[in-house]
């Protein structure tokens, strides 16, 4: 094998090895988090504090983004319906159904990936480069137990809660739009006739899966920060992209599983 083919294989192989290593460290982090939860090594006080930071502090953000999403979705779909058959009876039920099973959890997940994912990576990343994480290890305190586990539990619960809130916000804003711009009766709009148990289960599973994966991925990006103070910025960036993409991939996997099994 001559030098240029070696280079070629190196060039192809290096990113593969990098990706494999990154996935390995991410799954390792996830497994250790699960084990710590199973062994009940949980700092509940910290869980409550993190729940406040992750959940309550995200409410304005979720209200604005999901509110606008609800309005524009109803508006655009209603404009389409108006051109074909001006019968709006199914608009509300279909909107509520797809919000519950798809958009409320997924958009909430993306927003939390953006806001909380970058926040966790920045916070843990700063702790890593200033050697506070090493100081934790020196005190025999596992950084996973102290830093990641409380965030993972808090984030799982809070993404579920925020998703429920997101359904409410988008439904109300969509209903107001339907009523204001297309004169659709609010009672006609507010109907669960197309929604069934499957939709609610799929939506809830998505929310829990996003909630668990976001702090794991972001925390792992923070813990693997290197390159001094500049590294924190890069770790934060990486966390935003990886967590957002993880949400999209999980959405696909859970939707596909949901389609096959229901």
């Amino acid at each position: 094998m001559n030098a240029s083919t070696t280079n070629f294989f190196e060039a192809i192989g290096a990113p593969v090895v990098d990706i494999a290593r990154a996935w390995g460290s991410m799954f390792g982090c996830g497994l250790r988090t699960l084990r710590a939860i199973a062994m009940a090594r949980i700092a509940w006080r910290e869980v409550i504090h993190q729940s406040y930071l992750i959940g309550n502090r995200s409410v304005p953000f979720i209200t604005v983004t999901l509110g606008f999403l609800g309005m524009i979705s109803v508006y655009q779909v209603a404009m389409q319906i108006k051109q074909i058959i001006p019968d709006f009876t199914m608009l509300g039920p279909a909107f509520i159904q797809i919000m519950i099973r798809e958009f409320a959890p997924t958009i909430t997940g993306l927003m939390i990936a953006t806001r909380v994912g970058s926040g966790i990576a920045a916070e843990i990343g700063s702790m890593t480069v200033t050697e506070q994480v090493d100081a934790l290890r020196m005190c025999n305190a596992d950084p996973i137990v102290y830093l990641i586990v409380p965030r993972a539990i808090a984030c799982m619960v809070m993404v579920l809660m925020l998703s429920i809130y997101a359904v409410l916000v988008s439904t109300i804003s969509g209903m107001l739009m339907a009523n204001g711009a297309f004169d659709i009766n609010m009672r006609t709009f507010l109907s669960l006739q197309l929604t069934n148990g499957d939709d609610i289960v799929i939506g809830a599973v998505k929310a829990l899966a996003y909630g668990f994966s976001i702090p794991i991925i972001a925390g792992n990006a923070g813990l693997t920060t290197s390159g001094g103070s500049e590294g924190v910025g890069w770790a934060t960036t990486r966390a935003v992209v990886s967590t957002s993409f993880a949400v999209v991939v999980l959405d696909f996997l859970i939707s596909a599983a949901g389609y096959i099994f229901t």
């Binding site: 953006t114 700063s126 960036t237 935003v240």
Partner: peptide
């Protein structure tokens, strides 16, 4: 460094 991390966080939230 903390300032950069915080700025990235603010930037992505405002952008979203």
């Amino acid at each position: 460094a903390t300032g950069v991390g915080r700025a990235v966080n603010n930037s992505v939230v405002s952008n979203a």
